[in-house]
């Protein structure tokens, strides 16, 4: 990870970072992993295995109530979490980062207007807003979900970037740049935005964790990507029906979520401390 400039990573943080790398690589190269089963192959339809199987050598995590391999579904399900959280990070940091740095630097009416809009959007509980917009759009494929989540990520990033830009604008090198008559746009792109990036990066990791939980909750309610596409949230939801028979189909995706969210928080926390910056919002 890019934390080389700060304090060294503890052993535990290294494990967290390692887990994140494994998840990302696994999701990207899922098709190439030798021995990984087809996530939508329902073995019992072909007399090949049963539903709700216990873990075995054939199915390392067992099978779900449609006799699909859980390990494969977790690896492929990571794609949904990854695509949604990456879209949120990219859209949030590009648009939110730019707007926030801009209004934190120029202040005035633009600042008041944009921040009022941000406050109004943040006045809605995240899941409720996401739920409403997804319903109104009426389509639930991965691209729509990712776009909506990405769009809704812009306000929190704007808030963080603005707070950082406010602090950076008062630094001596910005004063110096102003004193020698540098154009405002140059100051924004050369001084303000680069100095907001470390904070935004640390925030991006923590926010990615929030987004993964949000998408998980949406999927759990059956309102994210449509089945049979695997996502960690809809796996827990599907397993809920058969808890009396086998609890493992609910445990595995939950564990995957917990490890991922924990790792994102841990690495994000490490980045934040090593850069000696405080995230100012959320």
């Amino acid at each position: 990870m890019a934390a080389g400039t700060g304090s060294r990573m503890s052993f535990f943080t290294r494990i967290c970072a390692g887990w994140l790398i494994v998840i990302v690589l696994g999701a990207i190269f899922a098709d190439l992993i030798p021995g990984l089963k087809d996530p939508n192959y329902q073995g019992f339809l072909f007399g090949d295995g049963a539903t709700n199987e216990r873990p075995s050598w054939n199915h390392l995590m067992g099978t779900d109530n449609n006799s699909r391999d859980i390990l494969a579904r977790i690896v492929y399900g990571a794609r949904v979490s990854l695509v949604v959280s990456m879209t949120a990070v990219v859209m949030g940091s590009v648009f939110g980062g730019f707007f926030g740095a801009l209004v934190g630097f120029v202040r005035g009416k633009t600042d008041a207007t944009i921040m009022a809009a941000v406050d109004v959007i943040l006045a809605f509980p995240g899941l409720v807003l996401l739920l409403t917009v997804v319903t109104l759009l009426g389509r639930r494929d991965l691209m729509v979900i990712a776009a909506v989540v990405g769009f809704l990520s812009i306000p929190p990033y704007t808030r963080v970037a603005r707070a950082t830009a406010l602090a950076v604008s008062r630094r001596e090198f910005v004063m110096a740049a102003r004193a020698i008559g540098t154009r405002k746009r140059t100051i924004l792109f050369r001084e303000i935005i680069p100095n907001c990036l470390p904070t935004l990066m640390a925030f991006a990791l923590v926010n990615a964790a929030v987004i993964i939980l949000l998408e998980g909750a949406l999927a759990f309610l059956g309102l994210s990507v449509e089945p049979p596409t695997a996502s960690w949230g809809n796996m827990v939801n599907a397993a809920r029906v058969d808890l009396t028979i086998n609890v493992w189909p609910a445990i595995w995706p939950s564990l995957a979520l917990v490890f991922t969210v924990y790792s994102l928080n841990n690495v994000g926390d490490h980045l934040r401390r090593s850069k000696a910056v405080r995230s100012a919002a959320l």
Partner: peptide, 22 residues
């Protein structure tokens, strides 16, 4: 505490449901 924050509410709910109800 870090662990508790990382557990999604639906996973925690399903696990509590399994343990205390089922």
């Amino acid at each position: 505490t870090f662990g508790l924050v990382a557990i999604p509410s639906f996973a925690l709910g399903v696990i509590l449901f399994y343990l205390f109800v089922v």
